[in-house]
Write a protein that binds this DNA or RNA. Structure first.
Lengths: 149, 149
DNA sequence: TATTGTTATACTCTATAACTATA
DNA sequence: TATAGTTATAGAGTATAACAATA
């Protein structure tokens, strides 16, 4: 009789856990950076997504920033109050709201771009630029993979 | 005059965002699975970690499961009430508490192991077993990389 | 003095459902 | 009827500080 096989994978080889741990180790310096403007991870993601894709509706932001719509509603309200974003009704479909990054929002992004670039350089230097690219490729492919039944 | 370079990377090539998006796409079916036992992601991680490493102290659990100690305190209290874990003072250092998975905890893990295995098979099938291994290798290396100054 | 873990507090996100307005 | 977004609500995690017990 041999031993039974382990019930589940080692947690290092569990993809959800490995993704979380890896993310935590990368996020630490970034959270420190963002804390200096009183902005959190979620708001930063929203800002990045909308700056990248241009004026867009909320459902699309929620999807791209990995946030639920009710969470996003609140986040956008405070970000609008802080002057980082503006919202306007869609002219063609009045159920929709179009969100745009304001000048102040762009300024906040710029304010962090230098330091963010430094963090990326450090990452590339210590982890290796080729490995970083490989990892990003794999993550994009994973994201595109359909796991539904 | 050429255009200015983009301020920041495309979000698909931002490591924190890519890690989060990839994780979300993998977690969806797992969350559905766990919901059937009324357990959440965090409790599942704690269970997996302690089952894997054996009886261990809370600071180590917090680190391995990516949770803060105050969050873990509450989680462990409810898991102990649910009978999934037991806690006992460390005999050699009475500041410490040693956490152990109970029979009921092991049973809960077993109850999900078949379905969890199916999800993993599907992942390997659709994403490719070699790519999965490559990705896990890179994530482990990333986790081991030191990004402090 | 430093470490382990708990408690307290304020804030935020999660998850779901019910709801409004519009299509 | 379906979709976009808001509101409500309960539960849970985040983050920090202060604290007690122990080393």
């Amino acid at each position: 009789m041999t031993d039974k096989p382990p019930i589940l994978r080692r947690t290092e080889r569990s993809l959800p856990i490995a993704l979380l741990r890896a993310r935590e180790s990368v996020m630490e310096p970034i959270r420190d950076m963002l804390a200096t403007s009183g902005i959190n991870e979620q708001k930063w993601r929203v800002l990045r997504v909308v700056q990248e894709q241009g004026p867009m509706e909320q459902t699309a932001i929620a999807q791209a920033a990995c946030l639920l719509l009710p969470s996003l509603t609140r986040i956008l309200r405070t970000m609008e109050e802080e002057g980082l974003l503006s919202r306007a009704p869609d002219l063609h479909d009045r159920r929709k709201t179009i969100v745009t990054v304001t000048e102040a929002g762009l300024a906040l992004i710029s304010a962090h771009s230098a330091q963010s670039g430094q963090l990326l350089s450090r990452l590339e230097q210590r982890f290796g630029p080729e490995r970083l690219n490989q990892l990003l490729d794999l993550l994009e492919e994973l994201r595109r993979t359909d796991f539904s039944e």
